[in-house]
């Protein structure tokens, strides 16, 4: 028996919007720790890792570890039928081939049940080693989204270079080049607007903008985004979900031949 009740249903809607363009089908894993997912995009260039900790739910019942295969587009469609302020409950009986999404409006006078078929998905869990990253940038999530969107109108790839002074995003295309530098900020009064750089070593890596633009669908989940890079690892783009966990995207760099 599985029963997860989330007071902020809008959060689950945002989570699905943040994953559905990157991954078609995925297994959600439910354990006493929380509700999680790890999945790669079809070309195995990017990986998304989601964790919604059990403590973040108003009620969390998961009698045994279960893995539920879902089509993320279909799940997003069903969740779009929930109001942003609705309470969302996920329910599944042991051995059932479907999951029920229950939506309750804030005044509790409208209750909706949506039942979705589960799928059998061959999951490939990858071991993600704990790593010390050479450079970590924390910046406003909306600013990062804006930069990725703007640069993708000029080129297909972005060179991200981190130094002690700031982070530089560069691209080039048929029409010309673009270069955006975000300098580290020193203000303390508005931490959500700060650009913070923790650098052990300067890093310069090239990534496909198409994927970064897909990751920025998670922007409504967090005010800040953390970008971690090492020269020999996929980059990690993390959006922390307050009180619940995180959504992390891993992206393999472009490699010089």
């Amino acid at each position: 028996m599985l029963e997860l009740r989330l007071l902020q249903g809008g959060l689950l809607k945002k989570v699905l919007e943040a994953m559905k363009d990157l991954v078609n089908d995925a297994n959600f894993d439910c354990s006493p720790t929380g509700f999680s997912l790890q999945a790669m995009d079809s070309s195995h260039v990017a990986l998304v890792s989601l964790l919604l900790r059990s403590e973040g739910f108003e009620h969390y019942r998961c009698d045994r570890n279960v893995s539920m295969g879902m089509n993320l587009n279909n799940m997003a469609k069903m969740l779009r039928c929930a109001g942003n302020d609705d309470i969302v409950t996920l329910k599944a009986d042991d051995g059932s081939d479907c999951i029920t999404f229950m939506f309750e409006n804030p005044s509790q006078d409208k209750i909706a049940d949506f039942e979705m078929k589960l799928m059998d998905i061959d999951s490939e869990h990858l071991g993600i080693p704990d790593a010390e990253y050479q450079s970590i940038v924390r910046m406003p999530a909306a600013e990062f989204a804006r930069i990725c969107r703007d640069l993708s109108t000029i080129g297909d790839t972005v060179l991200i270079s981190v130094s002690k002074e700031g982070v530089q995003f560069s691209t080039r295309g048929d029409m010309g080049t673009a270069n955006i530098v975000c300098r580290r900020t020193t203000t303390v009064d508005k931490p959500e607007e700060d650009v913070i750089i923790e650098m052990e070593e300067p890093v310069s890596l090239t990534f496909a903008l198409r994927y970064l633009n897909s990751f920025t669908k998670a922007t409504p989940l967090a005010t800040q985004v953390t970008i971690s890079m090492s020269s020999d690892l996929p980059m990690v783009i993390e959006y922390r979900i307050e009180g619940m966990g995180y959504i992390r995207y891993y992206l393999a760099p472009k490699i010089d031949e």
Partner: peptide
């Protein structure tokens, strides 16, 4: 141009 890397060459299946 540079070649797109693959996640599976960095993270191993478990």
């Amino acid at each position: 141009g540079p070649k797109q890397g693959n996640i599976l060459s960095f993270f191993k299946k478990i």
